[in-house]
Lab assay of single mutants.
Amino acid sequence: MPSETPQAEVGPTGCPHRSGPHSAKGSLEKGSPEDKEAKEPLWIRPDAPSRCTWQLGRPASESPHHHTAPAKSPKILPDILKKIGDTPMVRINKIGKKFGLKCELLAKCEFFNAGGSVKDRISLRMIEDAERDGTLKPGDTIIEPTSGNTGIGLALAAAVRGYRCIIVMPEKMSSEKVDVLRALGAEIVRTPTNARFDSPESHVGVAWRLKNEIPNSHILDQYRNASNPLAHYDTTADEILQQCDGKLDMLVASVGTGGTITGIARKLKEKCPGCRIIGVDPEGSILAEPEELNQTEQTTYEVEGIGYDFIPTVLDRTVVDKWFKSNDEEAFTFARMLIAQEGLLCGGSAGSTVAVAVKAAQELQEGQRCVVILPDSVRNYMTKFLSDRWMLQKGFLKEEDLTEKKPWWWHLRVQELGLSAPLTVLPTITCGHTIEILREKGFDQAPVVDEAGVILGMVTLGNMLSSLLAGKVQPSDQVGKVIYKQFKQIRLTDTLGRLSHILEMDHFALVV
């Protein structure tokens, strides 16, 4: 994948999101292997301009796509893939009243899908469409860049269908997702969380590099694949309309690839034109409109599966009536509230959605109805927002919020430890010299600072030695090549209790 991002070429006709291997024109390309080798690009942008032909009021008969309808489940399912879809609609009884809503608040519980998330729908649909058009064949390999849930859905379907599955996901995604993927037989590649989507090191860039190296491999490409919004247009939206008897006044959905909100909203605009569509985008993402909503100094966020630093091709923002931004604290607070007060075992993005819903639905009156999409299960986040310690460490809970008995030293300040200034190293000294210094002084790690004293990161003896043994660096290389740029900081005025929580999850903390 090139470091400079080429513009994806656009073909003359058809839909841009065809499933299957992508040609340089962004659509299915038939021909000899030699032709494909000559024409197939190194990668295709996940934010390529959409060429979708959908228009409100256009006859369904003019759609270029294969459409399906929700099917009634048999008493005995032939395999677990038949437990994807037909998820329950559940009334939220307490939270709406707590925040003064007059309307009825309903939750579409997508964590009841077989793999635990709304992404099971698009995973199965992308595979079925690729099999139907002859792209996927027995023994082929599926590769997908994902925040985890699409990966789980694909790995689940691949396990049943017999495909090899490789999932490329950023490091910030939970260990629970990784464990589930491994249990399903998927191979996992992790990428830096802070890598831009168009960087060769991003999950998108690495996935395309693997595709170019592995024979008979395919990126189904949830960011561009029409099967993504079509899955929701054909099934999720129809289920909502049936469950609500066609009567709903507002739908609120958090947005990642945009397939969920695009597919549902398009069908609702056709069948229930008075329904307002509300999009939820986390602070630090750029999906919301108008652009002024996205202006923030924050560039990272903890909530998973929603928000991006690019506009995915499948996201149709014209069908969203209003956007709201959400933050991590309210997302996790509301997710825990949904679990504790409503018994809905949902993930953090569901918290984002409901946090926005109780604001947006203030305009609705008694007798009206708001539906929220709860995308995934708490299963993926047992060591994250479900953990009091994690919430404390991230600053989303305060010590006084917890009532468990603490040891005698818990409320003492870090400054009472009488710490001395640490050994520091410059980023320009060599790895070999740094190892000598650390061994001589008896230290395992040291902060790396520039000549102005600005902290650049941390270097550890173990990481340097393993990097040297693996051949990633040489003793003569500058130590700046092996620094940890993500590390926890703590102030002298913070409590030892807070430091204790940090050290339970990290090997060190830097006192500043």
Rank of each mutant, 00 (worst) to 15 (best):
P170E: 04
P229Q: 05
R18E: 11
T257I: 00
A183E: 08
R18I: 11
I152M: 06
Y223S: 00
G185M: 00
V252W: 07
A186T: 11
I76W: 07
P215T: 06
I127M: 13
P46I: 10
T135S: 02
I167T: 12
A226I: 15
E213Q: 15
K36V: 06
H65V: 02
K82P: 09
P2T: 12
I76K: 11
I127K: 06
K247T: 13
R196P: 13
G258F: 01
K72H: 10
I92K: 05
H65P: 05
L154M: 05
T257E: 02
D47P: 05
R164G: 04
G14W: 08
G153Q: 03
R58I: 09
G256W: 00
K83G: 10
A159H: 06
I84M: 13
P41M: 09
F112L: 06
K30I: 05
W54M: 07
R190S: 08
S117W: 03
D238C: 08
L28E: 09
A8H: 10
M250R: 02
Y233L: 03
K75N: 10
E239K: 09
C272P: 08
Y233E: 00
T68H: 10
L210Q: 05
C103M: 05
L77V: 14
G139I: 02
S63F: 15
S23F: 14
P6M: 11
L124T: 10
T193C: 06
K172G: 01
H22I: 05
L230G: 02
H67D: 02
Q243A: 07
V255Q: 07
G205R: 11
P229A: 02
C244G: 03
D79E: 13
G100N: 09
P229I: 05
L230Y: 13
E4T: 05
N212K: 13
G115H: 07
A237E: 06
R224A: 12
V252G: 07
H22Y: 08
T87W: 00
I219F: 05
R182A: 04
T146C: 04
I219A: 04
T236E: 04
S23G: 07
L28T: 10
M250T: 04
G134F: 06
H203W: 05
E239R: 07
T68S: 13
M169R: 06
L251A: 08
S32P: 10
T13H: 07
K98E: 13
N228H: 03
